[in-house]
Design a protein around this nucleic acid. Structure first.
Lengths: 237, 237
DNA sequence: ACCCTAAAGATTGTTGAGCAATCTGACAAG
DNA sequence: CTTGTCAGATTGCTCAACAATCTTTAGGGT
Protein backbone atom coordinates (compact mmCIF):
# COMPACT_ATOMS: atom_id res chain seq x y z
CA UNK A 1 0.00 0.00 0.00
CA UNK A 2 1.25 3.46 -0.80
CA UNK A 3 1.41 5.95 2.03
CA UNK A 4 -0.45 8.83 0.45
CA UNK A 5 -0.35 10.78 3.64
CA UNK A 6 3.38 10.43 4.10
CA UNK A 7 4.14 11.26 0.50
CA UNK A 8 3.25 14.84 1.26
CA UNK A 9 5.52 14.88 4.27
CA UNK A 10 8.37 13.47 2.25
CA UNK A 11 7.95 16.12 -0.42
CA UNK A 12 8.00 18.78 2.29
CA UNK A 13 11.25 17.42 3.69
CA UNK A 14 12.86 17.35 0.27
CA UNK A 15 11.93 20.99 -0.16
CA UNK A 16 13.38 21.94 3.22
CA UNK A 17 16.68 20.44 2.18
CA UNK A 18 17.49 23.55 0.20
CA UNK A 19 16.77 25.63 3.28
CA UNK A 20 19.22 23.83 5.54
CA UNK A 21 22.30 25.88 4.79
CA UNK A 22 25.37 23.69 4.99
CA UNK A 23 27.97 26.44 5.14
CA UNK A 24 31.43 25.38 4.15
CA UNK A 25 34.39 26.86 5.97
CA UNK A 26 35.32 28.94 2.94
CA UNK A 27 31.84 30.44 2.83
CA UNK A 28 31.97 31.30 6.49
CA UNK A 29 35.32 33.00 6.07
CA UNK A 30 33.91 34.91 3.12
CA UNK A 31 30.97 36.00 5.24
CA UNK A 32 33.20 37.27 8.01
CA UNK A 33 35.32 39.24 5.60
CA UNK A 34 32.31 40.57 3.73
CA UNK A 35 30.75 41.79 6.91
CA UNK A 36 33.95 43.49 8.01
CA UNK A 37 34.14 45.24 4.68
CA UNK A 38 30.51 46.30 4.36
CA UNK A 39 30.40 47.42 7.98
CA UNK A 40 33.35 49.66 7.33
CA UNK A 41 35.71 48.03 9.82
CA UNK A 42 38.15 47.39 7.00
CA UNK A 43 38.89 50.66 5.27
CA UNK A 44 39.11 51.03 1.52
CA UNK A 45 42.58 50.22 0.23
CA UNK A 46 43.52 47.99 3.15
CA UNK A 47 45.69 45.09 2.18
CA UNK A 48 44.60 41.60 3.16
CA UNK A 49 47.61 39.28 3.35
CA UNK A 50 46.66 35.64 3.01
CA UNK A 51 48.98 34.31 5.68
CA UNK A 52 47.87 36.81 8.31
CA UNK A 53 44.19 36.15 7.62
CA UNK A 54 44.72 32.41 7.76
CA UNK A 55 46.33 32.66 11.16
CA UNK A 56 43.85 35.18 12.51
CA UNK A 57 40.87 33.11 11.44
CA UNK A 58 42.39 29.76 12.27
CA UNK A 59 42.03 28.27 8.79
CA UNK A 60 44.47 27.29 6.10
CA UNK A 61 45.79 29.67 3.53
CA UNK A 62 44.04 27.78 0.75
CA UNK A 63 40.68 28.27 2.39
CA UNK A 64 41.36 31.96 2.83
CA UNK A 65 42.29 32.07 -0.82
CA UNK A 66 38.96 30.60 -1.85
CA UNK A 67 37.07 33.14 0.24
CA UNK A 68 39.11 36.01 -1.15
CA UNK A 69 38.43 34.87 -4.70
CA UNK A 70 34.73 34.96 -4.02
CA UNK A 71 34.84 38.48 -2.64
CA UNK A 72 36.94 39.59 -5.59
CA UNK A 73 34.20 38.24 -7.85
CA UNK A 74 31.74 40.31 -5.84
CA UNK A 75 33.88 43.37 -6.47
CA UNK A 76 34.30 44.11 -2.79
CA UNK A 77 37.97 43.26 -3.04
CA UNK A 78 40.48 43.79 -5.80
CA UNK A 79 43.25 41.39 -6.66
CA UNK A 80 46.52 42.59 -8.13
CA UNK A 81 48.66 39.82 -9.54
CA UNK A 82 51.52 38.85 -7.23
CA UNK A 83 50.75 41.81 -5.01
CA UNK A 84 47.74 40.70 -3.05
CA UNK A 85 44.11 41.57 -2.53
CA UNK A 86 42.91 44.91 -1.22
CA UNK A 87 39.63 46.33 -0.09
CA UNK A 88 38.23 48.00 -3.18
CA UNK A 89 38.64 51.75 -3.48
CA UNK A 90 35.74 52.81 -5.68
CA UNK A 91 36.62 55.88 -7.69
CA UNK A 92 34.32 58.14 -9.71
CA UNK A 93 34.09 55.60 -12.54
CA UNK A 94 32.92 52.93 -10.11
CA UNK A 95 30.33 55.35 -8.72
CA UNK A 96 29.05 56.06 -12.20
CA UNK A 97 28.93 52.37 -13.07
CA UNK A 98 27.17 51.35 -9.88
CA UNK A 99 24.55 54.04 -10.24
CA UNK A 100 24.10 53.37 -13.93
CA UNK A 101 23.28 49.78 -13.07
CA UNK A 102 21.03 50.76 -10.17
CA UNK A 103 19.12 53.31 -12.27
CA UNK A 104 18.52 50.63 -14.81
CA UNK A 105 17.63 47.85 -12.43
CA UNK A 106 15.58 49.39 -9.64
CA UNK A 107 13.10 51.50 -11.60
CA UNK A 108 12.66 48.66 -14.08
CA UNK A 109 11.61 46.42 -11.22
CA UNK A 110 8.97 48.93 -10.20
CA UNK A 111 7.70 49.55 -13.70
CA UNK A 112 7.68 45.92 -14.78
CA UNK A 113 5.62 44.80 -11.81
CA UNK A 114 2.97 47.20 -13.16
CA UNK A 115 -0.40 45.56 -12.71
CA UNK A 116 1.22 42.14 -12.53
CA UNK A 117 0.49 40.62 -9.16
CA UNK A 118 -1.63 43.03 -7.21
CA UNK A 119 -2.32 42.04 -3.64
CA UNK A 120 -0.37 38.79 -3.75
CA UNK A 121 1.03 37.37 -0.56
CA UNK A 122 4.55 38.02 -1.76
CA UNK A 123 3.55 41.54 -2.73
CA UNK A 124 2.15 42.44 0.67
CA UNK A 125 5.22 40.94 2.29
CA UNK A 126 7.41 43.26 0.26
CA UNK A 127 5.30 46.27 1.16
CA UNK A 128 5.61 45.23 4.77
CA UNK A 129 9.38 45.16 4.48
CA UNK A 130 9.38 48.54 2.79
CA UNK A 131 7.31 50.07 5.58
CA UNK A 132 9.64 48.53 8.13
CA UNK A 133 12.67 49.99 6.37
CA UNK A 134 11.15 53.47 6.35
CA UNK A 135 10.34 53.14 10.02
CA UNK A 136 13.83 51.86 10.76
CA UNK A 137 15.34 54.85 9.01
CA UNK A 138 13.21 57.36 10.87
CA UNK A 139 13.99 55.95 14.27
CA UNK A 140 17.66 55.80 13.37
CA UNK A 141 17.61 59.45 12.37
CA UNK A 142 15.83 60.34 15.60
CA UNK A 143 18.61 58.64 17.54
CA UNK A 144 21.19 60.43 15.41
CA UNK A 145 22.59 57.06 14.41
CA UNK A 146 24.04 57.61 10.95
CA UNK A 147 24.95 54.00 10.35
CA UNK A 148 21.42 52.91 11.15
CA UNK A 149 20.04 55.38 8.64
CA UNK A 150 22.38 54.02 6.01
CA UNK A 151 21.42 50.44 6.81
CA UNK A 152 17.74 51.30 6.64
CA UNK A 153 18.32 52.76 3.21
CA UNK A 154 19.97 49.58 2.04
CA UNK A 155 17.08 47.55 3.38
CA UNK A 156 14.61 49.74 1.54
CA UNK A 157 16.30 49.28 -1.80
CA UNK A 158 16.78 45.57 -1.25
CA UNK A 159 13.10 45.19 -0.49
CA UNK A 160 12.27 47.14 -3.64
CA UNK A 161 14.14 44.67 -5.79
CA UNK A 162 12.30 41.93 -3.94
CA UNK A 163 9.25 43.07 -5.93
CA UNK A 164 10.78 41.39 -8.95
CA UNK A 165 10.45 38.01 -7.28
CA UNK A 166 13.76 36.93 -8.76
CA UNK A 167 16.48 35.39 -6.61
CA UNK A 168 19.07 36.24 -9.16
CA UNK A 169 18.16 39.91 -9.34
CA UNK A 170 17.99 40.00 -5.59
CA UNK A 171 21.54 38.65 -5.40
CA UNK A 172 22.67 41.17 -7.97
CA UNK A 173 21.10 43.97 -6.00
CA UNK A 174 22.86 42.81 -2.87
CA UNK A 175 26.20 43.10 -4.62
CA UNK A 176 25.37 46.55 -5.92
CA UNK A 177 24.28 47.72 -2.49
CA UNK A 178 27.34 46.28 -0.79
CA UNK A 179 29.49 48.19 -3.22
CA UNK A 180 27.39 51.28 -2.64
CA UNK A 181 28.25 50.94 0.98
CA UNK A 182 31.94 50.96 0.20
CA UNK A 183 31.31 54.18 -1.67
CA UNK A 184 29.44 55.78 1.20
CA UNK A 185 32.24 55.00 3.59
CA UNK A 186 34.55 57.00 1.40
CA UNK A 187 32.50 60.13 1.95
CA UNK A 188 32.41 62.25 5.05
CA UNK A 189 29.11 63.01 6.75
CA UNK A 190 27.25 59.83 5.88
CA UNK A 191 24.37 60.80 8.13
CA UNK A 192 23.84 64.15 6.45
CA UNK A 193 24.02 62.44 3.09
CA UNK A 194 21.47 59.74 3.80
CA UNK A 195 18.93 61.72 5.74
CA UNK A 196 17.24 63.65 2.91
CA UNK A 197 16.57 60.40 1.10
CA UNK A 198 14.59 59.08 4.00
CA UNK A 199 11.47 61.04 3.12
CA UNK A 200 11.91 60.26 -0.55
CA UNK A 201 11.80 56.58 0.36
CA UNK A 202 8.53 57.26 2.14
CA UNK A 203 7.19 59.12 -0.90
CA UNK A 204 8.05 56.22 -3.19
CA UNK A 205 6.36 53.82 -0.84
CA UNK A 206 3.24 56.01 -0.90
CA UNK A 207 3.16 55.99 -4.68
CA UNK A 208 3.51 52.22 -4.60
CA UNK A 209 0.66 51.50 -2.21
CA UNK A 210 -1.63 53.79 -4.18
CA UNK A 211 -0.81 51.83 -7.32
CA UNK A 212 1.10 54.59 -9.11
CA UNK A 213 3.97 52.40 -10.14
CA UNK A 214 5.10 54.39 -13.14
CA UNK A 215 5.30 57.51 -11.02
CA UNK A 216 7.19 55.60 -8.35
CA UNK A 217 9.68 54.41 -10.96
CA UNK A 218 10.19 57.96 -12.18
CA UNK A 219 10.70 59.27 -8.70
CA UNK A 220 13.22 56.54 -8.02
CA UNK A 221 15.13 57.40 -11.19
CA UNK A 222 15.44 61.05 -10.14
CA UNK A 223 16.38 59.93 -6.66
CA UNK A 224 19.24 57.76 -7.89
CA UNK A 225 20.43 60.45 -10.25
CA UNK A 226 20.49 63.00 -7.46
CA UNK A 227 22.39 60.63 -5.20
CA UNK A 228 24.98 59.97 -7.88
CA UNK A 229 25.46 63.66 -8.53
CA UNK A 230 25.86 64.38 -4.86
CA UNK A 231 28.42 61.62 -4.41
CA UNK A 232 30.42 62.61 -7.45
CA UNK A 233 30.48 66.20 -6.24
CA UNK A 234 31.81 65.05 -2.90
CA UNK A 235 34.51 63.03 -4.66
CA UNK A 236 35.73 65.87 -6.81
CA UNK A 237 35.66 68.43 -4.05
CA UNK B 1 66.46 66.46 -18.00
CA UNK B 2 63.26 64.52 -18.06
CA UNK B 3 62.74 62.22 -20.97
CA UNK B 4 59.47 63.62 -22.26
CA UNK B 5 59.60 61.34 -25.23
CA UNK B 6 60.02 58.24 -23.16
CA UNK B 7 57.46 59.36 -20.64
CA UNK B 8 54.85 58.86 -23.30
CA UNK B 9 56.14 55.39 -24.01
CA UNK B 10 56.12 54.54 -20.34
CA UNK B 11 52.57 55.79 -19.96
CA UNK B 12 51.56 53.71 -22.96
CA UNK B 13 53.12 50.62 -21.42
CA UNK B 14 51.38 51.27 -18.14
CA UNK B 15 48.08 51.55 -19.97
CA UNK B 16 48.66 48.35 -21.92
CA UNK B 17 49.26 46.59 -18.66
CA UNK B 18 45.53 46.39 -18.11
CA UNK B 19 45.15 44.98 -21.61
CA UNK B 20 47.81 42.30 -21.24
CA UNK B 21 45.69 39.69 -19.56
CA UNK B 22 47.83 38.08 -16.90
CA UNK B 23 45.76 34.95 -16.69
CA UNK B 24 46.41 32.86 -13.67
CA UNK B 25 46.31 29.12 -14.08
CA UNK B 26 43.03 28.91 -12.23
CA UNK B 27 41.46 31.42 -14.59
CA UNK B 28 42.67 29.52 -17.60
CA UNK B 29 41.23 26.30 -16.24
CA UNK B 30 37.95 28.12 -15.59
CA UNK B 31 37.93 29.38 -19.17
CA UNK B 32 38.47 25.92 -20.59
CA UNK B 33 35.67 24.49 -18.49
CA UNK B 34 33.37 27.39 -19.24
CA UNK B 35 33.88 26.99 -22.94
CA UNK B 36 33.23 23.27 -22.78
CA UNK B 37 30.02 23.91 -20.92
CA UNK B 38 28.69 26.77 -23.04
CA UNK B 39 29.64 24.97 -26.27
CA UNK B 40 27.60 22.02 -25.15
CA UNK B 41 30.46 19.52 -25.07
CA UNK B 42 29.70 18.86 -21.42
CA UNK B 43 26.07 17.87 -21.10
CA UNK B 44 23.81 19.13 -18.36
CA UNK B 45 24.06 17.01 -15.24
CA UNK B 46 27.56 15.72 -16.00
CA UNK B 47 29.66 15.22 -12.92
CA UNK B 48 33.08 16.87 -12.78
CA UNK B 49 35.35 14.98 -10.38
CA UNK B 50 38.19 17.14 -9.13
CA UNK B 51 40.90 14.49 -9.32
CA UNK B 52 40.05 13.49 -12.89
CA UNK B 53 40.00 17.10 -14.06
CA UNK B 54 43.28 17.83 -12.35
CA UNK B 55 44.98 14.95 -14.12
CA UNK B 56 43.34 15.66 -17.48
CA UNK B 57 44.36 19.32 -17.41
CA UNK B 58 47.75 18.78 -15.83
CA UNK B 59 47.18 21.02 -12.85
CA UNK B 60 46.79 20.41 -9.16
CA UNK B 61 43.50 19.58 -7.54
CA UNK B 62 43.58 22.84 -5.59
CA UNK B 63 43.74 24.84 -8.77
CA UNK B 64 40.86 22.89 -10.26
CA UNK B 65 38.94 23.58 -7.10
CA UNK B 66 39.43 27.32 -7.45
CA UNK B 67 38.22 27.21 -11.06
CA UNK B 68 35.18 25.14 -10.14
CA UNK B 69 34.24 27.57 -7.40
CA UNK B 70 34.26 30.40 -9.88
CA UNK B 71 31.98 28.58 -12.31
CA UNK B 72 29.66 27.68 -9.47
CA UNK B 73 29.43 31.40 -8.67
CA UNK B 74 28.54 31.97 -12.32
CA UNK B 75 25.75 29.41 -11.99
CA UNK B 76 27.07 27.28 -14.82
CA UNK B 77 27.93 24.54 -12.36
CA UNK B 78 26.22 23.41 -9.22
CA UNK B 79 28.00 22.20 -6.11
CA UNK B 80 26.42 19.65 -3.82
CA UNK B 81 28.18 19.33 -0.49
CA UNK B 82 30.42 16.26 -0.29
CA UNK B 83 29.01 15.02 -3.59
CA UNK B 84 30.79 17.11 -6.15
CA UNK B 85 30.06 19.69 -8.82
CA UNK B 86 27.84 19.06 -11.79
CA UNK B 87 26.99 20.91 -14.95
CA UNK B 88 23.84 22.82 -14.08
CA UNK B 89 20.55 21.35 -15.20
CA UNK B 90 18.27 24.36 -15.55
CA UNK B 91 14.67 23.42 -14.88
CA UNK B 92 11.51 25.44 -15.56
CA UNK B 93 12.15 27.65 -12.53
CA UNK B 94 15.60 28.55 -13.83
CA UNK B 95 14.11 29.33 -17.23
CA UNK B 96 11.56 31.62 -15.64
CA UNK B 97 14.21 33.33 -13.53
CA UNK B 98 16.64 33.83 -16.39
CA UNK B 99 13.97 35.29 -18.64
CA UNK B 100 12.56 37.43 -15.89
CA UNK B 101 15.98 38.97 -15.46
CA UNK B 102 16.52 39.31 -19.20
CA UNK B 103 13.12 40.94 -19.72
CA UNK B 104 13.98 43.43 -17.07
CA UNK B 105 17.54 44.12 -18.13
CA UNK B 106 17.58 44.17 -21.91
CA UNK B 107 14.56 46.36 -22.67
CA UNK B 108 15.61 48.72 -19.91
CA UNK B 109 18.95 49.18 -21.62
CA UNK B 110 17.18 50.13 -24.83
CA UNK B 111 14.69 52.44 -23.18
CA UNK B 112 17.19 54.14 -20.88
CA UNK B 113 19.57 55.03 -23.68
CA UNK B 114 16.63 57.03 -25.10
CA UNK B 115 18.00 60.23 -26.47
CA UNK B 116 21.10 59.90 -24.31
CA UNK B 117 24.14 59.64 -26.52
CA UNK B 118 22.99 59.80 -30.13
CA UNK B 119 25.67 59.21 -32.70
CA UNK B 120 28.50 58.70 -30.26
CA UNK B 121 31.51 56.68 -31.27
CA UNK B 122 30.58 53.98 -28.79
CA UNK B 123 27.03 54.07 -30.09
CA UNK B 124 27.96 53.51 -33.71
CA UNK B 125 30.32 50.73 -32.66
CA UNK B 126 27.44 48.97 -30.96
CA UNK B 127 25.22 49.35 -34.01
CA UNK B 128 28.04 47.93 -36.07
CA UNK B 129 28.22 44.90 -33.82
CA UNK B 130 24.46 44.46 -33.99
CA UNK B 131 24.51 44.52 -37.78
CA UNK B 132 27.34 42.01 -37.79
CA UNK B 133 25.39 39.70 -35.48
CA UNK B 134 22.33 39.81 -37.74
CA UNK B 135 24.50 39.06 -40.75
CA UNK B 136 26.24 36.24 -38.89
CA UNK B 137 22.89 34.70 -38.06
CA UNK B 138 21.60 34.86 -41.61
CA UNK B 139 24.66 33.26 -43.10
CA UNK B 140 24.56 30.60 -40.41
CA UNK B 141 20.95 29.84 -41.23
CA UNK B 142 21.79 29.67 -44.93
CA UNK B 143 24.44 27.07 -44.18
CA UNK B 144 21.98 25.18 -42.01
CA UNK B 145 24.40 25.58 -39.09
CA UNK B 146 22.18 25.62 -36.03
CA UNK B 147 24.97 26.34 -33.56
CA UNK B 148 26.09 29.35 -35.58
CA UNK B 149 22.55 30.72 -35.50
CA UNK B 150 22.47 30.30 -31.74
CA UNK B 151 25.85 31.99 -31.35
CA UNK B 152 24.77 34.88 -33.53
CA UNK B 153 21.76 35.33 -31.34
CA UNK B 154 23.94 35.50 -28.25
CA UNK B 155 26.16 38.07 -29.92
CA UNK B 156 23.16 40.17 -30.81
CA UNK B 157 21.90 40.30 -27.26
CA UNK B 158 25.36 40.92 -25.84
CA UNK B 159 25.81 43.83 -28.21
CA UNK B 160 22.43 45.19 -27.14
CA UNK B 161 23.50 45.35 -23.53
CA UNK B 162 26.65 47.05 -24.73
CA UNK B 163 24.42 50.07 -25.35
CA UNK B 164 24.34 50.60 -21.62
CA UNK B 165 28.06 51.32 -21.61
CA UNK B 166 28.41 49.52 -18.30
CA UNK B 167 31.06 46.86 -17.78
CA UNK B 168 29.17 45.45 -14.89
CA UNK B 169 25.90 45.05 -16.79
CA UNK B 170 27.81 43.59 -19.67
CA UNK B 171 29.32 40.99 -17.36
CA UNK B 172 25.92 40.26 -15.90
CA UNK B 173 24.49 39.81 -19.39
CA UNK B 174 27.27 37.40 -20.26
CA UNK B 175 26.33 35.23 -17.32
CA UNK B 176 22.66 35.30 -18.26
CA UNK B 177 23.42 34.42 -21.85
CA UNK B 178 25.77 31.60 -20.89
CA UNK B 179 23.03 30.16 -18.74
CA UNK B 180 20.55 30.65 -21.57
CA UNK B 181 22.83 28.51 -23.67
CA UNK B 182 22.66 25.73 -21.14
CA UNK B 183 18.90 25.96 -21.43
CA UNK B 184 18.93 25.82 -25.21
CA UNK B 185 21.06 22.71 -25.16
CA UNK B 186 18.40 21.02 -23.14
CA UNK B 187 15.88 21.46 -25.93
CA UNK B 188 15.73 19.50 -29.16
CA UNK B 189 15.75 21.31 -32.49
CA UNK B 190 17.81 24.31 -31.52
CA UNK B 191 18.01 25.47 -35.11
CA UNK B 192 14.26 25.50 -35.58
CA UNK B 193 13.93 27.33 -32.30
CA UNK B 194 16.41 30.09 -33.02
CA UNK B 195 15.58 30.76 -36.64
CA UNK B 196 12.32 32.72 -36.23
CA UNK B 197 14.07 35.13 -33.90
CA UNK B 198 16.60 36.04 -36.54
CA UNK B 199 14.26 38.36 -38.36
CA UNK B 200 12.99 39.79 -35.13
CA UNK B 201 16.57 40.74 -34.29
CA UNK B 202 16.73 42.54 -37.63
CA UNK B 203 13.44 44.29 -36.88
CA UNK B 204 14.71 45.50 -33.52
CA UNK B 205 17.87 46.76 -35.14
CA UNK B 206 15.78 48.67 -37.67
CA UNK B 207 13.78 50.33 -34.93
CA UNK B 208 17.03 51.28 -33.23
CA UNK B 209 18.70 52.92 -36.18
CA UNK B 210 15.54 54.90 -36.91
CA UNK B 211 15.58 56.18 -33.37
CA UNK B 212 12.42 54.40 -32.20
CA UNK B 213 13.93 53.15 -28.99
CA UNK B 214 10.75 52.77 -27.01
CA UNK B 215 9.24 50.68 -29.79
CA UNK B 216 12.43 48.60 -29.94
CA UNK B 217 12.22 47.99 -26.20
CA UNK B 218 8.60 46.89 -26.51
CA UNK B 219 9.39 44.56 -29.34
CA UNK B 220 12.23 43.06 -27.36
CA UNK B 221 9.97 42.50 -24.38
CA UNK B 222 7.45 40.56 -26.49
CA UNK B 223 10.34 38.70 -28.09
CA UNK B 224 11.70 37.52 -24.77
CA UNK B 225 8.25 36.61 -23.51
CA UNK B 226 7.59 34.53 -26.61
CA UNK B 227 10.93 32.77 -26.27
CA UNK B 228 10.26 31.94 -22.64
CA UNK B 229 6.82 30.56 -23.45
CA UNK B 230 8.19 28.45 -26.24
CA UNK B 231 10.95 27.03 -24.06
CA UNK B 232 8.66 26.28 -21.17
CA UNK B 233 6.26 24.53 -23.52
CA UNK B 234 9.11 22.40 -24.81
CA UNK B 235 10.12 21.53 -21.23
CA UNK B 236 6.67 20.41 -20.18
CA UNK B 237 6.01 18.38 -23.31
C1' DA C 1 72.08 65.15 -2.98
C1' DC C 2 70.42 62.14 -6.97
C1' DC C 3 69.79 58.10 -9.81
C1' DC C 4 70.65 53.54 -10.98
C1' DT C 5 71.68 48.65 -9.77
C1' DA C 6 71.78 44.63 -7.07
C1' DA C 7 70.99 41.76 -3.39
C1' DA C 8 67.84 40.48 0.41
C1' DG C 9 63.23 39.82 2.19
C1' DA C 10 58.44 39.02 1.88
C1' DT C 11 54.20 37.48 -0.49
C1' DT C 12 51.78 35.31 -4.00
C1' DG C 13 50.71 31.36 -7.23
C1' DT C 14 50.81 26.63 -7.52
C1' DT C 15 51.91 22.03 -6.30
C1' DG C 16 51.66 17.61 -3.76
C1' DA C 17 50.51 14.70 -0.06
C1' DG C 18 47.58 13.51 3.55
C1' DC C 19 43.50 12.96 6.69
C1' DA C 20 38.75 13.35 8.58
C1' DA C 21 33.99 13.67 7.19
C1' DT C 22 30.68 12.28 4.13
C1' DC C 23 28.42 10.05 0.33
C1' DT C 24 27.63 5.75 -2.56
C1' DG C 25 26.81 1.07 -3.44
C1' DA C 26 26.69 -3.54 -2.28
C1' DC C 27 25.70 -7.04 0.53
C1' DA C 28 23.81 -9.39 4.50
C1' DA C 29 20.20 -9.72 8.11
C1' DG C 30 15.72 -9.34 9.72
C1' DC D 1 11.46 -5.49 0.71
C1' DT D 2 13.07 -2.75 4.23
C1' DT D 3 16.94 -1.92 7.47
C1' DG D 4 21.73 -2.03 8.97
C1' DT D 5 26.50 -2.40 8.11
C1' DC D 6 30.74 -1.93 5.90
C1' DA D 7 34.19 -1.04 2.25
C1' DG D 8 35.45 2.26 -1.40
C1' DA D 9 35.55 6.64 -3.41
C1' DT D 10 35.34 11.72 -3.19
C1' DT D 11 35.08 15.94 -1.10
C1' DG D 12 36.58 19.63 2.33
C1' DC D 13 40.36 21.20 4.40
C1' DT D 14 45.13 21.36 6.19
C1' DC D 15 50.08 21.57 6.00
C1' DA D 16 54.52 22.16 3.91
C1' DA D 17 57.25 23.48 0.20
C1' DC D 18 59.07 26.02 -3.90
C1' DA D 19 59.39 29.06 -8.03
C1' DA D 20 57.97 33.54 -9.65
C1' DT D 21 57.31 38.06 -8.63
C1' DC D 22 57.02 42.31 -6.06
C1' DT D 23 59.13 45.48 -2.45
C1' DT D 24 62.69 47.20 0.18
C1' DT D 25 67.16 48.07 1.37
C1' DA D 26 71.89 48.95 0.66
C1' DG D 27 75.34 50.46 -2.01
C1' DG D 28 77.96 52.53 -5.98
C1' DG D 29 78.61 55.87 -9.25
C1' DT D 30 78.15 60.70 -10.63
Amino acid sequence: MSLTGEQGVIAALAASRSVVVVTSTAERVASVLRENVTEGRLRAGTRLPEAALAQALGVSRNTVREALSQLVAERLLVREAHRGVFVATPGPEAVRDVYLARRLLEPAVLASSEGAQQGTDAETAVLQRLRAAVQEGRSGAARGDGDAVGSANQHFHLALVGLSGSDRLQAQAELLLAESRLIFYRMPLAQAFHEPYLERNAAILDLLVTGQRAAAAEHLTRYLRDAEDEILAAFDG
